[in-house]
Protein backbone atom coordinates (compact mmCIF):
# COMPACT_ATOMS: atom_id res chain seq x y z
CA UNK A 1 0.00 0.00 0.00
CA UNK A 2 2.77 2.44 0.98
CA UNK A 3 4.58 1.59 -2.22
CA UNK A 4 1.46 2.40 -4.25
CA UNK A 5 1.07 5.75 -2.52
CA UNK A 6 4.75 6.56 -2.96
CA UNK A 7 4.58 5.71 -6.66
CA UNK A 8 1.41 7.77 -7.05
CA UNK A 9 3.25 10.73 -5.57
CA UNK A 10 6.24 10.20 -7.85
CA UNK A 11 4.15 9.91 -11.06
CA UNK A 12 2.67 13.34 -10.37
CA UNK A 13 -0.37 15.15 -11.74
CA UNK A 14 -0.50 14.71 -15.49
CA UNK A 15 -3.77 16.02 -16.84
CA UNK A 16 -3.14 18.72 -19.44
CA UNK A 17 -4.47 22.27 -19.25
CA UNK A 18 -6.33 21.88 -22.54
CA UNK A 19 -8.49 23.69 -23.58
CA UNK A 20 -7.39 26.59 -21.36
CA UNK A 21 -3.89 26.28 -22.79
CA UNK A 22 -3.01 25.29 -26.31
CA UNK A 23 -1.16 21.98 -26.61
CA UNK A 24 2.45 22.04 -27.73
CA UNK A 25 2.68 20.16 -31.02
CA UNK A 26 6.01 18.59 -32.05
CA UNK A 27 7.94 20.78 -34.54
CA UNK A 28 7.63 18.15 -37.28
CA UNK A 29 3.88 17.72 -36.82
CA UNK A 30 1.85 17.97 -40.02
CA UNK A 31 -1.38 19.86 -39.55
CA UNK A 32 -3.40 22.30 -41.66
CA UNK A 33 -1.67 22.67 -45.06
CA UNK A 34 -0.02 25.92 -46.07
CA UNK A 35 -0.08 26.98 -49.68
CA UNK A 36 2.99 28.90 -50.68
CA UNK A 37 1.68 30.62 -53.77
CA UNK A 38 -0.95 30.71 -56.44
CA UNK A 39 -0.46 27.98 -59.01
CA UNK A 40 2.11 29.17 -61.59
CA UNK A 41 0.57 30.06 -64.94
CA UNK A 42 0.61 27.20 -67.41
CA UNK A 43 0.90 24.53 -64.71
CA UNK A 44 -0.38 21.32 -66.25
CA UNK A 45 -2.25 20.25 -63.09
CA UNK A 46 0.06 17.35 -62.29
CA UNK A 47 -1.10 17.58 -58.68
CA UNK A 48 -4.35 15.98 -59.74
CA UNK A 49 -2.48 12.83 -60.78
CA UNK A 50 0.47 12.87 -58.41
CA UNK A 51 -1.46 12.88 -55.13
CA UNK A 52 -1.76 9.21 -54.08
CA UNK A 53 -5.19 9.78 -52.56
CA UNK A 54 -6.54 12.12 -55.28
CA UNK A 55 -6.94 14.93 -52.73
CA UNK A 56 -5.62 17.72 -54.99
CA UNK A 57 -7.43 19.75 -57.58
CA UNK A 58 -6.69 22.97 -59.36
CA UNK A 59 -9.66 25.30 -59.52
CA UNK A 60 -9.35 28.78 -61.09
CA UNK A 61 -5.59 28.83 -60.72
CA UNK A 62 -5.68 27.87 -57.07
CA UNK A 63 -4.90 24.60 -55.43
CA UNK A 64 -7.78 22.99 -53.58
CA UNK A 65 -6.86 20.25 -51.15
CA UNK A 66 -9.58 17.91 -49.92
CA UNK A 67 -8.61 17.39 -46.30
CA UNK A 68 -11.06 14.53 -46.14
CA UNK A 69 -8.86 12.60 -48.55
CA UNK A 70 -5.48 14.03 -47.59
CA UNK A 71 -3.17 11.64 -45.71
CA UNK A 72 -0.79 14.44 -44.67
CA UNK A 73 2.07 12.54 -46.31
CA UNK A 74 5.50 13.56 -45.11
CA UNK A 75 6.74 13.35 -48.70
CA UNK A 76 3.67 15.01 -50.22
CA UNK A 77 4.41 14.52 -53.91
CA UNK A 78 1.45 16.51 -55.15
CA UNK A 79 2.96 19.83 -56.14
CA UNK A 80 6.32 19.74 -57.96
CA UNK A 81 6.53 23.54 -57.51
CA UNK A 82 6.72 23.01 -53.75
CA UNK A 83 3.38 24.70 -53.28
CA UNK A 84 2.16 22.52 -50.38
CA UNK A 85 3.65 22.28 -46.92
CA UNK A 86 2.00 21.39 -43.65
CA UNK A 87 1.77 23.75 -40.71
CA UNK A 88 1.29 22.88 -37.07
CA UNK A 89 -2.35 23.91 -36.72
CA UNK A 90 -4.02 20.80 -35.36
CA UNK A 91 -7.61 22.19 -35.42
CA UNK A 92 -9.21 20.46 -38.39
CA UNK A 93 -12.70 19.29 -37.38
CA UNK A 94 -15.49 20.50 -39.71
CA UNK A 95 -19.25 20.15 -39.88
CA UNK A 96 -19.79 19.95 -43.65
CA UNK A 97 -18.06 17.74 -46.17
CA UNK A 98 -17.44 20.73 -48.50
CA UNK A 99 -15.76 22.62 -45.65
CA UNK A 100 -12.89 20.17 -46.00
CA UNK A 101 -12.08 21.51 -49.46
CA UNK A 102 -9.37 23.89 -48.41
CA UNK A 103 -7.48 26.38 -50.54
CA UNK A 104 -5.74 28.50 -47.94
CA UNK A 105 -6.89 31.28 -45.67
CA UNK A 106 -9.20 30.79 -42.76
CA UNK A 107 -10.37 27.24 -42.17
CA UNK A 108 -14.12 26.85 -41.48
CA UNK A 109 -13.83 25.17 -38.10
CA UNK A 110 -16.68 23.06 -36.79
CA UNK A 111 -19.65 25.07 -35.55
CA UNK A 112 -21.66 23.94 -32.52
CA UNK A 113 -24.70 21.70 -32.86
CA UNK A 114 -28.01 23.42 -33.42
CA UNK A 115 -29.75 24.50 -30.15
CA UNK A 116 -32.10 21.53 -29.81
CA UNK A 117 -29.39 18.86 -29.88
CA UNK A 118 -26.87 21.08 -28.10
CA UNK A 119 -29.28 21.40 -25.18
CA UNK A 120 -29.52 17.61 -24.99
CA UNK A 121 -25.87 16.70 -25.46
CA UNK A 122 -23.91 19.82 -24.48
CA UNK A 123 -23.06 18.64 -20.98
CA UNK A 124 -23.37 14.88 -21.30
CA UNK A 125 -22.37 13.21 -24.51
CA UNK A 126 -22.05 9.41 -24.77
CA UNK A 127 -20.37 7.91 -27.80
CA UNK A 128 -20.34 4.41 -29.22
CA UNK A 129 -17.15 3.84 -31.18
CA UNK A 130 -17.21 1.41 -34.11
CA UNK A 131 -14.15 0.43 -36.08
CA UNK A 132 -15.09 -0.66 -39.59
CA UNK A 133 -11.84 -1.50 -41.31
CA UNK A 134 -9.81 0.97 -39.24
CA UNK A 135 -6.12 0.16 -38.83
CA UNK A 136 -6.14 0.76 -35.07
CA UNK A 137 -4.48 4.14 -35.55
CA UNK A 138 -7.61 6.28 -35.24
CA UNK A 139 -8.96 3.82 -32.66
CA UNK A 140 -5.84 4.22 -30.53
CA UNK A 141 -6.07 8.00 -30.75
CA UNK A 142 -9.71 7.85 -29.57
CA UNK A 143 -8.81 5.43 -26.80
CA UNK A 144 -6.05 7.70 -25.58
CA UNK A 145 -8.59 10.46 -24.91
CA UNK A 146 -9.68 8.38 -21.92
CA UNK A 147 -6.20 8.48 -20.36
CA UNK A 148 -5.46 11.00 -17.67
CA UNK A 149 -3.53 13.34 -19.99
CA UNK A 150 -6.71 14.21 -21.90
CA UNK A 151 -9.26 13.03 -19.33
CA UNK A 152 -12.24 13.11 -21.66
CA UNK A 153 -14.64 12.55 -18.76
CA UNK A 154 -14.10 16.09 -17.42
CA UNK A 155 -15.93 17.40 -20.50
CA UNK A 156 -18.91 15.11 -19.93
CA UNK A 157 -17.92 12.97 -22.91
CA UNK A 158 -17.63 9.23 -22.50
CA UNK A 159 -17.26 6.16 -24.70
CA UNK A 160 -19.94 3.62 -23.78
CA UNK A 161 -20.26 -0.09 -24.43
CA UNK A 162 -23.73 -0.24 -25.93
CA UNK A 163 -25.36 1.71 -28.74
CA UNK A 164 -28.48 1.77 -26.54
CA UNK A 165 -26.60 4.01 -24.11
CA UNK A 166 -25.13 6.20 -26.82
CA UNK A 167 -25.99 9.65 -28.16
CA UNK A 168 -23.58 9.38 -31.02
CA UNK A 169 -21.69 6.99 -33.26
CA UNK A 170 -17.99 7.69 -33.71
CA UNK A 171 -16.80 5.73 -36.69
CA UNK A 172 -13.29 4.93 -37.84
CA UNK A 173 -12.19 2.96 -40.88
CA UNK A 174 -13.33 2.88 -44.50
CA UNK A 175 -16.50 0.83 -43.76
CA UNK A 176 -15.55 -2.49 -45.26
CA UNK A 177 -18.17 -4.57 -47.05
CA UNK A 178 -17.94 -7.01 -44.16
CA UNK A 179 -18.73 -4.33 -41.57
CA UNK A 180 -21.35 -2.35 -43.45
CA UNK A 181 -24.38 -4.07 -41.94
CA UNK A 182 -22.89 -4.01 -38.43
CA UNK A 183 -22.38 -0.24 -38.76
CA UNK A 184 -25.95 0.30 -39.93
CA UNK A 185 -27.29 -1.97 -37.16
CA UNK A 186 -25.34 -0.02 -34.55
CA UNK A 187 -26.74 3.25 -35.88
CA UNK A 188 -30.27 1.82 -35.85
CA UNK A 189 -29.85 0.64 -32.27
CA UNK A 190 -29.09 4.14 -30.98
CA UNK A 191 -32.01 6.17 -29.68
CA UNK A 192 -32.84 9.35 -31.63
CA UNK A 193 -31.80 12.12 -31.87
CA UNK A 194 -28.32 10.89 -32.67
CA UNK A 195 -25.03 12.18 -33.91
CA UNK A 196 -22.54 10.66 -36.33
CA UNK A 197 -18.85 11.49 -36.31
CA UNK A 198 -16.36 10.31 -38.93
CA UNK A 199 -12.80 10.23 -37.64
CA UNK A 200 -9.86 9.85 -40.00
CA UNK A 201 -9.34 9.84 -43.76
CA UNK A 202 -10.72 6.28 -44.03
CA UNK A 203 -14.03 7.11 -42.40
CA UNK A 204 -14.41 10.31 -44.40
CA UNK A 205 -13.47 8.97 -47.82
CA UNK A 206 -11.90 5.51 -47.71
CA UNK A 207 -8.40 6.89 -46.99
CA UNK A 208 -5.55 4.85 -48.48
CA UNK A 209 -8.09 2.18 -49.46
CA UNK A 210 -10.51 4.34 -51.43
CA UNK A 211 -9.70 2.40 -54.61
CA UNK A 212 -10.62 -0.97 -53.12
CA UNK A 213 -13.84 -2.69 -54.05
CA UNK A 214 -14.00 -4.00 -50.46
CA UNK A 215 -14.71 -0.60 -48.87
CA UNK A 216 -17.32 2.16 -49.07
CA UNK A 217 -16.59 5.61 -50.41
CA UNK A 218 -16.98 7.44 -47.17
CA UNK A 219 -19.37 7.18 -44.27
CA UNK A 220 -21.60 9.97 -45.57
CA UNK A 221 -22.65 7.68 -48.44
CA UNK A 222 -24.35 5.56 -45.73
CA UNK A 223 -25.29 7.89 -42.87
CA UNK A 224 -25.72 11.63 -42.27
CA UNK A 225 -22.43 12.85 -40.76
CA UNK A 226 -22.37 15.69 -38.19
CA UNK A 227 -18.63 16.05 -37.70
CA UNK A 228 -15.62 15.22 -39.84
CA UNK A 229 -12.18 14.90 -38.24
CA UNK A 230 -9.48 14.65 -40.94
CA UNK A 231 -6.05 13.04 -40.54
CA UNK A 232 -4.31 9.72 -40.91
CA UNK A 233 -4.73 9.32 -38.05
CA UNK A 234 -5.86 12.64 -36.55
CA UNK A 235 -3.91 13.77 -33.49
CA UNK A 236 -5.86 13.13 -30.27
CA UNK A 237 -6.08 16.89 -29.76
CA UNK A 238 -7.59 17.23 -33.24
CA UNK A 239 -10.35 14.79 -32.25
CA UNK A 240 -10.87 16.41 -28.85
CA UNK A 241 -10.95 19.90 -30.36
CA UNK A 242 -13.59 18.76 -32.87
CA UNK A 243 -15.74 17.19 -30.15
CA UNK A 244 -15.54 20.27 -27.94
CA UNK A 245 -16.43 22.61 -30.81
CA UNK A 246 -19.41 20.45 -31.62
CA UNK A 247 -20.57 20.86 -28.03
CA UNK A 248 -19.84 24.60 -28.03
CA UNK A 249 -17.14 24.19 -25.42
CA UNK A 250 -14.39 26.00 -27.35
Amino acid sequence: MLQIIRERWRQGFRTGEFPKEEPLMPPRFRGLPLFKQECPPGCDRVCETLCPSSACKQVDGRMVLDLGRCLFCADCPACPHGGITFGNNYRLGARQRQDLLYSGGEYPLAQPLEPARLKLFGRSFKLRQVSAGGCNGCEADCNVLGTLVFDLGRFGIQFVASPRHADGLLLTGPVTENMRSAVLDTYEAMPAPKIVIAVGACGINGGPFSHSSEVSQGLDSLLPVDLYVPGCPPHPYTILDGLLRLLDRR
Partner: peptide, 19 residues
Amino acid sequence: LGYQHRGIERMLQNGPHPA
Protein backbone atom coordinates in the same frame (compact mmCIF):
# COMPACT_ATOMS: atom_id res chain seq x y z
CA LEU B 1 -12.44 -12.71 -38.67
CA GLY B 2 -12.47 -10.83 -41.96
CA TYR B 3 -14.55 -7.83 -40.86
CA GLN B 4 -11.58 -5.53 -41.41
CA HIS B 5 -10.77 -6.91 -44.85
CA ARG B 6 -9.79 -4.06 -47.16
CA GLY B 7 -8.31 -6.10 -50.01
CA ILE B 8 -4.72 -4.93 -49.54
CA GLU B 9 -2.88 -7.83 -51.19
CA ARG B 10 -5.08 -7.62 -54.23
CA MET B 11 -4.54 -3.87 -54.55
CA LEU B 12 -0.79 -4.51 -54.66
CA GLN B 13 -0.98 -6.45 -57.90
CA ASN B 14 1.06 -4.67 -60.60
CA GLY B 15 2.35 -2.36 -57.89
CA PRO B 16 3.94 -0.65 -56.22
CA HIS B 17 1.38 2.11 -56.77
CA PRO B 18 1.50 5.70 -55.47
CA ALA B 19 -0.82 4.78 -52.57
